[in-house]
Structures are given as C-alpha cells and as structure tokens.
Amino acid sequence: MEEKEAVAEPKEKKTHDKNEVVIEIIHLKKSFGSKDVLKDINLTVHSGENVVVLGRSGQGKSVTIQCIVGMLIPDGGTLKVFGEEVADLNDKELKELRMKIGFLFQSGALYDSMTVRENMEFPLTRVLKLEDQGEIDKRVEEVLEAVGLAEAIDKMPSDLSGGMRKRAGLARTLIIKPEIMLYDEPTTGLDPITSREISQLILDMQKRYKTTSIIITHDMECARITADRVVIMDDGEYIAQGSFDELHKSKNKLVQSFFKDIS
C-alpha cells in the first residue's frame, strides 16, 4: 500500500522562447450527442501570451480548455500541448502534463471539507509528493501572500467571500508553479470592483509566475485588463482575433456587439 508513484516534482521551470508554440489547436471538433459544440477550432498560443476567449454563453468556450487539460476527448482535429498530442497520452503522461497546467474553475472549486491551508497543501503533498513540512509551509505562505489571503489561511471555504474563494482557488492552482494557466470565467458572479481586482491579480500572477494563459470570459473589462490577444468565438468556431484595441475597431457586427458598451 505504501508504494508511491514515481512522479517527480518538475525541475526549475523551463524558460520558453517567446515565439515557442505552447498550445496548438487545428480543426478541433467536439460534439455532445447531436449537438456540435466545437466545429472547427484553430488556435496557436505562444509562450508567455495571455489569450482571452470571448463568446456568448453556451457556445462551448469552456469545452476547448477542458480538451486542453484532457478532461474531454476531442472527436477530431489536433490538440498539442508542448508539442504532445493530448488525446494520445497515457495516464502517467497525462498526469505529468497536468502538473504543468493550472486550471481555475468558475467557482474556485475549493475542497470545502478542508481549511484554506489544507487546500494549498493538497497539491503539494498529493501531486508533487513534498514531505518537508518547512518547505510546504513556506510555499503555502508565499502563494497566499501573493494573492493577498495570508490572513485567511486557517479559514474554511464557507467563511470566504466569492472574491476570496477565487483568490484561494488561484493560489491553489499557482502553488505547483504551472507553465500554463487556464481560467474558466474567473470573474463570473463577482461585483465589478472585485472582478477588476481578480483581473488585475491574474495579470500580476502571470508576470510573477511567467505563465502562458487562456482566459475564458464574457467580461469585457477582464478581457481589456488581461488580454495580449482576444479571440471571439461563435457557433463552434473562432471568428476573429487580434488585440483588444484592434477588435474594438472591427467592422464585424458580431465583434462589435461585444464591444458596444465599451467607450
């Protein structure tokens, strides 16, 4: 029973070339029953880039990032992360890939039977298999300090506000120092001030931890703050992409509809 799986902690984070392709998606397709959610998704994400995917609700924005992390298996097309086809990975390889990817869920998805500290310790002890309590404590304190939650370390998730839960979820994701961050609607359900704080935090964390990010949202303020590049999704395809300002000036009616309330 004591046998441990040989999954070593990733070595010091590799420094990636700015032009290095981290995520490559070509003609990705995914259906649920008779509903074609992803029809033809094409996307290339470079190292250190923050890509924001905008789209209406129910268009399958989250499905793309769920395919990236191997939660869903695409029906067709190519999806490569660090040059490896995700659908071809075995369990061990998928686990190793997931150690390089952080996924922030819409709700924060904190384990509600554990304190914030235990939530932070969980990936360190279960995924990275750290045993030195001093090292664990140091990393927990450091990441909570970074997201401004040091004082909530011994609180239960039920005692935290929505914004604090998102911060704690972000901290738990960042504690294993991922190379890619996937954010699933990080500002949904938050008031405008807290949304702005979370968006700013995403940007700060991206700079601090040097991650490559895909942010799924329909919050334009979040997109404006965090995006290096914005991709617009409609009817299972990416219909436009460019910087926030470029798309703001676009003549495409659907693109304009996203930006119509932005001055």
């Binding site: 997931r98 150690m99 990817i101 996924f103 869920f105 998805a109 384990y111 279960r126």
Partner: peptide, 9 residues
C-alpha cells in the same frame, strides 16, 4: 474535476 485536473487522484 479540480482534484482530477491538478494531477491528484
């Protein structure tokens, strides 16, 4: 899902 995608079992 969070536990699963973090690489924990």
């Amino acid at each position: 899902d969070a536990m699963d995608v973090s690489g924990a079992n």
